[in-house]
């Protein structure tokens, strides 16, 4: 697994360089597909061994991560977009933010209940 993580990190580094410098030699689609491919590998590797006890927190935690679209919605209220797009952006921000905060807090609450015998509480 550390091999996959290493690969992904390298790829992400290599991939982000041309984008940031806008050299334009490699189209974003190709870079994006590389990143996608490696992230899926990392995802499969990381999640495969999670015990059933943690399935619910894993799901609600990853659900909160899917609220990352908040980043996308923030761009939509920028000056790159016409004002009418900003309306979609604001609704998206509201929804994504509920998803993010709600998801992380609920996961934290659930995990707070797990404890070993003779542990605290």
């Amino acid at each position: 697994m550390s091999l996959f993580l290493g690969l992904a990190a390298q790829a992400a580094e290599a991939a982000s360089a041309p984008v940031a410098q806008e050299s334009g030699s490699i189209p974003f689609l190709i870079v994006g597909l590389w990143v996608l491919l490696l992230s899926i590998f990392v995802g499969f590797e990381v999640i495969q061994k999670v015990p059933p006890t943690l399935h619910t927190p894993l799901m609600s935690g990853s659900n909160a991560i899917s609220g990352i679209t908040i980043v996308g919605s923030l761009y939509c209220v920028g000056n790159d977009y016409p004002l009418s797009a900003g309306i979609f952006g604001v609704i998206a921000i509201l929804c994504a933010m509920i998803n993010v905060v709600g998801g992380f807090v609920v996961t934290d609450r659930m995990l707070g209940m797990f404890h070993a015998k003779g542990g605290k509480k």
Partner: peptide, 14 residues
């Protein structure tokens, strides 16, 4: 945006 691709596909895979 690579961040969106990485996190989206992590969740997708899980």
């Amino acid at each position: 945006n690579n961040l969106l691709i990485v996190s989206g596909s992590l969740v997708g895979a899980s």
